[in-house]
């Protein structure tokens, strides 16, 4: 097996780790801290690198746990977000009823709603979606990182995609 180098094999994972941490904490500063803590932790365990199957999966698992810790300490962040989105979609239906059918959704507004829908998914669904749709990982790789079976990964991904689809279609209906 190839010798693992921190600079060439571990540090380049930073952006993927950052995006995963960001999906979990929903806070860029916290996500950056999570990645820093992750990389330091991986470095401290450098004597065990040779025994690890995939340094990438290993780093992702550590990162997720650190990010979950931070998100847990941050408390009710998610609840506030879902509250916000409810208010926002109400605003939308009111707003749209005032305009003619010809009034189209601004794509920017669509984006911001979809962003909020994604942020309100349960954490596991967010993480699975991030690893699949953003990082392009196989179900097996995702299972390794999240300590789930492949079929569990698929179930979570299915829930995530279905719920985003439904909400996106609903918003679209309100708008038209």
């Amino acid at each position: 097996m190839k010798k693992i180098s921190f600079r060439d094999d571990v540090l380049p994972l930073k952006n993927r780790l950052y995006r995963l941490a960001l999906r979990i904490t929903l806070n860029p500063a916290e996500a950056e801290d999570a990645v820093q803590d992750t990389l330091i932790k991986v470095w401290e365990h450098r004597e065990e690198w040779e025994q690890i199957d995939s340094i990438e999966a290993y780093a992702h698992t550590i990162c997720r746990n650190i990010a979950l810790d931070m998100a847990g300490k941050a408390g009710r962040g998610n609840v506030q977000l879902s509250e916000e989105i409810r208010v926002k979609s109400e605003e939308f239906s009111i707003l749209n009823s005032q305009f003619s059918i010809e009034e189209k959704f601004d794509q920017k507004e669509r984006l911001s709603l979809v962003r909020k829908i994604m942020d309100t998914l349960p954490e596991v669904q967010r993480s699975v979606m991030e690893l699949r749709d953003i990082e392009g990982k196989t179900y097996q790789e995702i299972g390794n990182i999240l300590k789930l079976t492949e079929s569990q990964v698929k179930v979570y991904l299915h829930r995530a995609r279905t719920s985003i689809r439904q909400q996106a279609e609903e918003i679209e209906k309100y708008g038209l």
Partner: peptide
């Protein structure tokens, strides 16, 4: 398909988050 475009656009946007 515009509603779905938003989903893929947001994914694209999320993919651009870097350090």
């Amino acid at each position: 398909l515009m509603a779905y475009k938003a989903i893929f656009d947001v994914q694209q946007e999320q993919a651009e988050a870097t350090l």
